[in-house]
């Protein structure tokens, strides 16, 4: 499991590579907390290279989203792979999270919001 981060303008992009299972999710949680602590208001989590997610992984994402909401920030998920998309649907997470087809679209959405 690897996490890489980059910024584009004011959008902070986290790219995860590997499985988001109960083991790797701890690392992701730490990373997300760190990012949120640093007041990044616009976060994109790109799951293009994640082909597996467990409930622990879901909870990590949910916790991050709650924290971010409290701070008036937002999180967008991008590039959900088929299996991950199924799990999101199955658990109703697809209704909680803002999900974009890919990273570019997610950035555009942030920019659209900014314009409004």
């Amino acid at each position: 499991m690897q996490i890489s981060t980059k910024s584009k303008d004011d959008v902070y992009i986290i790219e995860i590579l590997g499985r988001m299972d109960s083991i790797s999710s701890k690392e992701i949680e730490a990373k997300l907390n760190d990012v949120i602590e640093h007041n990044k208001s616009k976060i994109i989590i790109d799951l293009a290279a994640v082909d597996y997610i467990s409930s622990v992984g879901l909870r990590v994402l949910l916790a991050a989203l709650k924290k971010q909401k409290e701070r008036d920030g937002s999180i967008r998920l991008a590039s959900l792979q088929p299996f991950v998309r199924d799990i999101f649907k199955m658990t109703g997470f697809d209704r909680i999270f803002s999900i974009s087809l890919n990273q570019e679209e997610a950035i555009d959405r942030f920019n659209d919001q900014a314009r409004i």
């Binding site: 467990s54 409930s55 949910l62 916790a63 909401k69 199955m90 658990t91 909680i96």
Partner: peptide, 21 residues
């Protein structure tokens, strides 16, 4: 699981997934 973010329970997801999958 249809509840909104704020009311959403954090537990129970796992059993739901076990059952569904």
């Amino acid at each position: 699981f249809s509840a909104d973010l704020e009311e959403r329970p954090v537990g129970g997801l796992g059993i739901h997934l076990m059952r569904s999958l």
